[in-house]
Each structure stands twice: as C-alpha cells, then as structure tokens.
Simulated scan of single mutants.
Amino acid sequence: MSTHTEHDFTKAKAVTVDGIEGEYARVEMPDGTTEDWRLDAMPEGVKEGDVVYVRAAEGQFEMRIDHEETRERRQHAQSQLDTLNAESGTGTEEINL
C-alpha cells in the first residue's frame, strides 16, 4: 500500500482556469470539456490561465497552482502571438496576452 503526503501530486490531474466570472471559475478539464467551479473552492489567488493540479485524497480534493507550468504556457502562447503579429505585417495593433 503506497502512502501519499499532502504535497504528493504525482497522480494529480492538471486543469486550466479558462475564465473567472463572479463567484465561479470556468475550468478546462484534461479532456477539453469545461466545468464551472466555485471560486472559493479554488486555491487562493487563482487567476485566468493558471494551471491547477487537482488530486483526490481520502475522499477530499487537494489543489495547488503550478506557477512554473502556468508561466511556461503563457510564454509559449505569447511567442505564438508574436510570430503571428510579425507575419501579418499589416501595421494594425498587435495581439498580446
């Protein structure tokens, strides 16, 4: 029988906060579907675009924001937008995250 500490997220699932509206966070699930979760059930300080790891432990859910993964995804997305902006060459306003 394996034991897990509160900080063992090796079997956790990653979800992405797609948006925040009022008291709810719209969360993109690993399969691409979305669900609305109560914001007060999410980790403190969660923001749109954050990657959150969720793990079920002893009948309860534990969540934590993966700041490093969030930063990497934002940098990748911004890089893609920068490439699109450079290729457009129209002189119109750039798109940024």
Rank of each mutant, 00 (worst) to 15 (best):
M1C: 04
M1F: 06
S2L: 11
S2M: 07
S2H: 11
T3M: 13
H4R: 14
H4Y: 14
T5E: 09
H7R: 14
H7N: 15
H7F: 06
D8R: 10
D8G: 08
D8N: 02
F9Y: 06
F9T: 05
F9N: 02
T10R: 14
T10S: 15
K11M: 03
K11D: 13
A12G: 09
A12L: 10
A12C: 07
K13C: 11
K13E: 11
V15N: 06
V15G: 02
V15H: 08
D18A: 15
D18S: 15
D18T: 12
G19N: 14
I20P: 03
I20Y: 02
I20F: 05
E21Y: 06
E21W: 00
G22R: 06
E23K: 04
Y24K: 13
Y24I: 08
A25H: 12
A25D: 05
A25R: 08
R26Y: 12
V27T: 00
E28V: 12
M29L: 15
M29Q: 15
P30D: 13
P30M: 12
P30A: 14
T34P: 08
W37I: 12
R38Q: 13
L39F: 05
D40L: 01
D40W: 02
M42R: 00
P43G: 04
P43A: 00
E44Q: 14
G45M: 01
K47M: 10
E48L: 04
G49A: 10
G49R: 11
G49T: 05
D50C: 08
D50Y: 05
V51G: 10
V51L: 00
V52M: 06
R55G: 01
A56S: 10
A56I: 05
A57R: 02
E58P: 03
G59K: 03
G59H: 04
Q60S: 11
Q60W: 02
E62L: 15
E62I: 11
E62K: 06
R64S: 06
I65F: 07
I65H: 01
D66W: 03
E68C: 07
E68R: 03
E69G: 00
E69Q: 12
T70D: 08
T70C: 07
T70K: 09
R71L: 00
E72W: 10
R73W: 04
R73A: 01
R74F: 12
R74S: 04
R74L: 01
Q75H: 04
Q75W: 00
H76V: 02
A77Q: 09
A77H: 05
S79T: 06
Q80L: 15
Q80E: 15
L81Y: 02
D82A: 02
D82P: 07
T83R: 14
L84N: 02
L84W: 01
L84Y: 05
N85S: 00
N85L: 04
N85V: 11
A86S: 14
A86H: 12
E87F: 01
E87Q: 12
G89K: 01
G89Q: 06
T90F: 01
G91E: 07
G91I: 09
T92P: 11
E93A: 12
E93S: 04
E93I: 03
I95T: 14
L97D: 03
